[in-house]
Computed example of a mutant assay.
Amino acid sequence: GLLAFVLAYRYLPADRRGPKTDRAGFDIVGTLLLALALGAYALAMTIGRGSFGPLNIALLVAAVFGAGFFVLVEARVASPLIRLGAFRNAMLSASLATSALVATVMMVTLVVGPFYLSRALGLDAALVGIVMSVGPLVAALTGVPAGRIADRFGAGRITIIGLIAIAAGCFILSVMPAISGIPGYIAPIAVITSGYALFQTANNAAVMSDIRPDQRGVVSGLLNLSRNLGLITGASAMGAVFAFASEAIDIATARAEAVAAGMRITFAVAAILIVVALAIAVGSRALTARPSLPGVS
């Protein structure tokens, strides 16, 4: 963290600001409402030790009401934290939705992977860690080439290709038998994570290139928010799908065959989610590319 601070201070260009004409204050009420809504949602998705009880339901209801009040406040204040009109941009709304869905699926690899590797394939903890490190390593090594590819062939096109790769990897895992062993798990995970690197880079580039400079900070925050909401949802909802599909009271002691079946079903659901994200991405591209009717802006 200290090294990152020093490098940023040394190499990032200084902000150049013109004279400040807008004296509207910071949206304190909106910020508090958003924080409370997000906190309630995070707690609703993570507490309960595997059971979704009355407290989880109450927190989820609180999150919904908090989000509703946040929208009402943002529509009325002079200087809103998030300008709701920005969501009329089809590209932005589609990118946020696809980012959340993709993050939900990527969390599956982190939640389901350790159980499958240890229970179904019988690996010890050290080997599980080594195999699990392949995905993040592939994503890290693919990041910079993904940026160059997106610059050359277009961010929108590479976004679609990245989603297709993630869907293909999930589909392969949903039909992969346990006898394929470690290589049968690593290969599709490499496809998923490389596709994720392509999607993430291209999706962010497509959004940020279409946003006014004074809105880039807010939109960057929204992209991070959608990704984190997807990670929270993936850890809980997709973890529940895995536990349910494994038909085990305690997943840590489930039979190898049950864990393998649960893994395949969970990645089948993940593939469906990516197909939905792909449909949203393709639909938004078609909508933004469609010419306007004469006299209609």
Rank of each mutant, 00 (worst) to 15 (best):
S95M: 14
A86W: 15
I160A: 01
S118A: 10
A261G: 01
A190G: 15
V218T: 15
A155L: 00
A155C: 01
S209T: 09
I189Q: 05
G181I: 10
I28R: 08
T109A: 13
L225T: 15
G113E: 12
V61P: 03
I272V: 12
A205R: 11
A256R: 04
E257L: 03
G162L: 03
G50Y: 14
F115W: 09
L231I: 01
R157Y: 09
G169T: 02
E247T: 00
V218L: 10
P213D: 11
I272T: 10
S292M: 11
L123D: 08
R285L: 11
S118H: 08
Q215Y: 01
S292F: 13
P145G: 11
M132I: 05
S194V: 02
V138M: 09
L225C: 12
M132Y: 05
R216K: 15
D124R: 04
R264Q: 08
V175N: 08
M176A: 06
S209H: 12
Y116N: 00
G156K: 12
K20P: 01
A35R: 04
L96R: 09
L173W: 00
A260C: 02
V275F: 13
T98G: 08
P291T: 13
G181E: 12
I274P: 00
A97S: 13
V276G: 01
P19S: 10
R212V: 03
F199C: 04
A205Q: 06
S51E: 06
V29A: 15
R152I: 03
R152T: 11
L278H: 10
A289N: 13
A252H: 11
T193I: 01
N224Y: 07
L3M: 08
I82H: 06
A42S: 12
I251N: 02
G50M: 10
